[in-house]
């Protein structure tokens, strides 16, 4: 497995933009005409789009448009009623959550969900453990594999904390970190699973403009290291600044898809966000 090479952990490389090397046509995640119903409520209605390797895709829409639902379907929390989701050509449905993570999909949460009584370092180590194989027996008897994986996991976790910029808080309990640090820690923890696709669910919620700018920088660095990024956000300006392409949802339906500039000028999107003026309707 090429997991270790993929670890986006060396900030020094981050400056070089890698966009031109990306093959835009290689699909990573395919959302294939997905419909999701909860009883009578149609949460997603025939949503269809593809995420290509190496890009930053923005999934946007007004509140309640079905962004997080779409996200949960992608990460295997909800099963689509119709249609299917394929990751690296394989169907997601029927796979266990931890298997999906091991396939290379990691996520953060809209409302932060760290392990509060574990240190920042340990939080990230849990992510790194996703690919570890130390058994209970090996851990009990401290077999060589335990030591090897333990060292690897720890080094990786330290690197990632450095990368997201909170390595000075390494031994602090997650619950004692500031809000911004917690958001960064979530990203580090997700990156520790060696994702091919990193899904960020409103990572900038509650951030001030300066923090948002730093976050954008971080997202670009992550992409430049070969990780595809799916970004959910309802702040249009933030999305415009960082994404390569944008998919817009409204009331569970895809209403637009394209380059940021195209989407911004799309009348349907403007209508969805600003409402339709009476005389134009």
């Amino acid at each position: 497995m090429s997991d270790t090479e993929q670890t986006p952990a060396v900030p020094a490389q981050a400056a070089a933009p890698a966009v031109e090397t990306v093959d835009k046509r290689e699909p990573l995640l395919e959302v294939d005409h997905v419909t999701l119903r909860f009883g009578g409520v149609v949460a997603l209605n025939d949503v269809d789009f593809t995420l290509y390797k190496g890009e930053i895709l923005g999934l946007i829409g007004p509140n309640g448009a079905g962004k997080t639902t779409c996200f949960n379907a992608m990460t295997g929390i909800y099963q689509p009623t119709e249609g299917q989701i394929r990751f690296l050509g394989q169907k997601i449905s029927g796979k266990k959550r931890h298997q999906i993570t091991r396939m290379g999909m990691a996520r953060t949460f809209q409302n932060i969900r760290l392990f509060p009584e574990m240190t920042a370092l340990e939080n990230v180590q849990v992510g790194a453990d996703a690919h570890h194989k130390t058994s209970v027996i090996a851990a009990l008897l401290r077999l060589p594999r335990h030591w090897k994986e333990e060292r690897e996991g720890r080094e990786k976790a330290e690197r990632l904390l450095e990368f997201v910029g909170i390595s000075n808080r390494m031994h602090e309990f997650a619950r004692n970190l500031s809000y911004g640090e917690q958001r960064r820690l979530e990203i580090a923890r997700a990156l520790a699973t060696d994702p091919k696709l990193l899904c960020l669910d409103e990572p900038a919620a509650g951030f001030n403009p300066a923090e948002k700018e730093e976050l954008l920088q971080l997202i670009r660095q992550i992409r430049d290291q070969g990780v595809t990024v799916l970004l959910i956000e309802h702040d249009m300006r933030l999305v415009m600044g960082v994404t390569d392409r944008i998919v817009v949802l409204e009331f569970g339906k895809k209403i637009a898809e394209g380059l940021p500039a195209e989407v911004r000028d799309n009348p349907k999107v403007v209508a969805a966000y600003l409402g339709v003026p009476d005389d134009a309707a």
Binding site: H98, A106, F115, E122, H131, R189, T193
Partner: peptide, 14 residues
């Protein structure tokens, strides 16, 4: 411990 702290998050972290 991760299961104790947040079982869903633990699953999603592999």
């Amino acid at each position: 411990i991760s299961i104790r702290e947040d079982e869903d998050a633990a699953q999603l972290m592999g």
